[in-house]
Amino acid sequence: TRVETATETAWISLVTALHLVLGLSAVLGLLLLRKQFPAHYRRLRHALW
């Protein structure tokens, strides 16, 4: 049972790390898009919101 708990903890930390990386890359991508293609960014924002 101890090994299972350790594996679960590892999976949870892995998933958390993946979510963090995905969130950060999404934010960075949006910032880059905003900087380089303001028109595209505006259109995207209108489409999303």
Rank of each mutant, 00 (worst) to 15 (best):
V27F: 12
P38G: 08
T5M: 05
E4V: 14
L32W: 11
V15T: 03
A39C: 01
S13Y: 10
H19G: 15
T1L: 13
R2N: 13
W11D: 08
A10D: 03
H46K: 10
I12W: 01
A47K: 12
A47E: 01
L31N: 04
Q36I: 00
L24N: 02
L32N: 01
R45A: 08
G23S: 10
I12D: 01
V21T: 15
L33W: 10
A17W: 08
H40P: 12
L30C: 14
H46V: 10
L18N: 04
T5S: 06
L14S: 01
G23P: 00
Q36F: 05
L28Q: 08
E4W: 10
E4Q: 15
Q36D: 04
R43T: 11
T7M: 15
L33V: 10
T9W: 11
A17Q: 00
R2S: 14
T1I: 15
A10Y: 09
T5H: 07
G23F: 14
Y41A: 15
A26N: 04
S13L: 14
I12A: 09
L28Y: 02
T7N: 12
L30M: 12
V15E: 03
H40A: 11
L28P: 03
L28I: 03
R2L: 15
A47Y: 12
P38M: 03
V21R: 04
L32S: 00
L14E: 01
A47D: 01
L32P: 02
L18W: 04
L24I: 09
A47V: 12
V15H: 08
L28M: 10
L31I: 08
S25A: 13
G23R: 07
E8C: 00
A39W: 11
A17I: 09
R45M: 10
G29L: 15
L24D: 04
V27R: 02
T9V: 14
T1K: 11
V3K: 07
L20R: 04
A26H: 01
V3M: 03
L30Q: 01
S13K: 08
F37V: 05
V15W: 08
H19M: 08
A6P: 08
A17Y: 06
V15N: 04
L44N: 00
R2M: 14
A17R: 08
K35H: 14
G29A: 15
T5C: 06
R34F: 06
L14G: 01
A10M: 03
K35C: 04
H19Y: 15
H46A: 09
R34H: 05
L28S: 03
L32I: 00
L31Q: 01
L30E: 06
L48V: 13
F37L: 04
V3Q: 06
L44E: 02
P38A: 02
V21Q: 03
L14D: 08
K35M: 09
A6E: 07
R42L: 11
R42C: 09
G23Q: 01
R45N: 02
L33P: 05
A26F: 14
R43M: 07
H19V: 15
H46M: 07
K35P: 00
T16W: 02
L14T: 01
L31C: 15
E8G: 02
P38I: 02
T5G: 05
R43D: 09
K35R: 07
T7D: 00
T9I: 11
E4K: 10
L18S: 00
W11R: 01
L24K: 06
E8L: 04
I12G: 03
S25P: 05
V21D: 05
L31M: 12
T5F: 05
L48D: 07
A39D: 15
V21W: 00
E4I: 13
L20N: 03
Q36C: 05
R45P: 07
G29W: 08
L28G: 01
T16L: 07
L22P: 11
R45T: 09
L22S: 14
L33E: 04
W11K: 00
L28R: 01
H19I: 15
Y41H: 10
A10E: 15
R45H: 06
R42K: 12
F37R: 06
T7V: 13
A47S: 11
L18D: 01
L22V: 15
R42I: 09
W49K: 07
L31K: 00
P38Y: 00
L20M: 12
L18R: 07
T9G: 15
R42G: 12
F37M: 00
L20W: 00
V15G: 02
V3D: 03
I12V: 13
W49N: 07
H19F: 14
I12Y: 09
S25G: 02
T9E: 11
T1W: 09
A6Q: 11
T9K: 12
A39F: 10
L20K: 09
A26D: 04
T5W: 09
V21K: 00
L22N: 04
T9Q: 10
V15D: 03
R42M: 11
L32A: 00
S13W: 12
F37A: 01
G29Y: 05
V3E: 02
T7F: 12
A17C: 11
P38H: 09
V21N: 01
G29I: 12
V27T: 11
S13P: 03
K35S: 09
E4T: 15
A6L: 07
S25N: 12
L33Q: 03
L44A: 10
S13C: 15
F37E: 06
T7W: 14
R42A: 12
L22T: 15
